[in-house]
Amino acid sequence: CGFHPAGSRPLPDVLRRVYVDVVVPYRVSEPPLEASLRARLTRQGALVTKEAASATATIKLTNLKEGRQVLSVGPDGKAIEFLLVTTVEYEVIDGGQVLVPPGSLRVTRAYTFNTEQVLAKEAEEARLREYIQDQLAELLLLKLETQLSHQQGRVDGAPAAVVDPLP
């Protein structure tokens, strides 16, 4: 039914050497979103550089917000289901030039809550947040790939959607 092993669609040139700039105030460790984005870029043959200068594009991620809302309550009015909402704003720039205009992504996930297992639920929430950020990385890369190869398609004149033969 027309499926090829992934990799037939080349990464847009501008993403070949890319710097990932995540602004997360007061956090020392790398958010899962950044780690997943780095792994996905590397897997597709990109070189994730150490600083923006040596990259042909900078993926700038800001305003990474992880919120939690009460989704459902029990008959006693107490929370029995939470909704995790994670949003991030992205933009791709090269020096002063904007390659992909700013946009934002939102992924949510619901999970039940039980007051007698607060510590276990806290660990479950942490794992779900990690899963959400991995999903954000996947959606973000798909979006950037499409928009950048779209631009590059127009630039090269070759229709972007043509599938190259297997490398």
Partner: peptide, 14 residues
């Protein structure tokens, strides 16, 4: 395994 294709409408499907 990871596959993708271009659907009839031109969309990319993984």
């Amino acid at each position: 395994l990871r596959f993708d294709r271009i659907t009839s409408t031109g969309a990319i499907q993984t």
